[in-house]
């Protein structure tokens, strides 16, 4: 640096340059930390992310559904006055949250006593793995084990489209809830399951489902649509309103 540039400029640039550089470097470091945190976000939640599928939550689900009849995609008695339809994607985190918190509460309060039944309507909007999971749910339904499989899968959820909802996870979960593997594999590849998925997608469009989970609560007193993993109070209020 030459001496002829003037003391003012030299003082300004010598203070400024490093400061701006430091701001840029610090910004890069902060972005790096944020990206690292973001990328590792969902992995800590104990979801199986490929590899050897270790299934958790089986006992919890067994206790949740104990003594409640499952028929096809329906949980609860066929003559229950209130019907709750749950539209959900097996890969959607809010659906897993609903499965962990909301659904056990609904089962306890309304399904086990016979006030309401719940029907699981799988959607596959997140990706190809969602489709795999949805078809497996129908196949499990043909063995009257749909809710057992779905609730266990939700408790083993990983990140979207990260590969956790693999054949391996599905079969391990199926084994854990007493589903016949051979029949499951035949049924989830069948046209019957494909048609069920198409029918539920059409029903979702008809019901104006824009996000998952969406609960459609209907009974003698009308129909209420509740979107999101809402507080139990909202769902309870809807059940009370439509039960007539």
């Amino acid at each position: 640096m030459s001496m002829g540039t003037g003391t003012g400029r030299a003082a300004r640039t010598s203070r400024r340059g490093p400061l701006v550089l430091a701001a840029v470097v610090a910004a890069a470091v902060v972005v790096g930390v944020l990206v690292a945190l973001s990328a590792s976000g969902g992995d800590g939640d104990g979801g199986a992310s490929g590899g050897t599928a270790t299934i958790v939550g089986v006992e919890e689900v067994r206790a949740e559904l104990a003594g409640v009849p499952v028929s096809g995609m329906r949980l609860g008695r066929a003559d229950a006055p209130v019907r709750i339809e749950e539209y959900a994607d097996l890969q959607c985190p809010f659906c897993a949250q609903a499965a962990a918190v909301l659904v056990p509460e609904i089962v306890e309060r309304y399904v086990r006593p016979g006030t309401a039944s719940m029907t699981f309507r799988p959607l596959d909007f997140i990706g190809e793995d969602s489709r795999r999971g949805a078809l497996a749910a129908y196949a499990a339904g043909y063995q009257n084990r749909s809710w057992q499989l779905v609730e266990v899968l939700f408790r083993n959820q990983g990140k979207e489209n990260a590969g956790w909802l693999s054949d391996e996870t599905i079969l391990a979960a199926a084994d854990a809830v007493g589903i016949d593997r051979e029949r499951l594999n035949a049924d989830r590849a069948s046209d019957r399951a494909e048609q069920a998925l198409a029918a539920d997608a059409a029903a979702a469009r008809k019901d104006g489902v824009e996000s998952t989970p969406t609960f459609v609560v209907s009974g003698p007193g009308g129909t209420r649509v509740i979107a999101g993993a809402q507080d139990i109070r909202q769902l309870a209020a809807a059940v009370e309103e439509v039960r007539g």
């Binding site: 945190l37 969902g42 990140k159 979207e160 979107a227």
Partner: peptide, 29 residues
């Protein structure tokens, strides 16, 4: 409001807002 995306313009909002990437260390982006 419970992860219900009201954005009718783009369908992708539901997936993005409900994804595990919508939070950093528990703080919504």
């Amino acid at each position: 409001s419970g992860g219900t995306p009201a954005c009718a313009i783009a369908t992708g909002c539901a997936q993005v807002q409900q994804s595990a990437y919508s939070e950093v260390a528990g703080v919504p982006v």
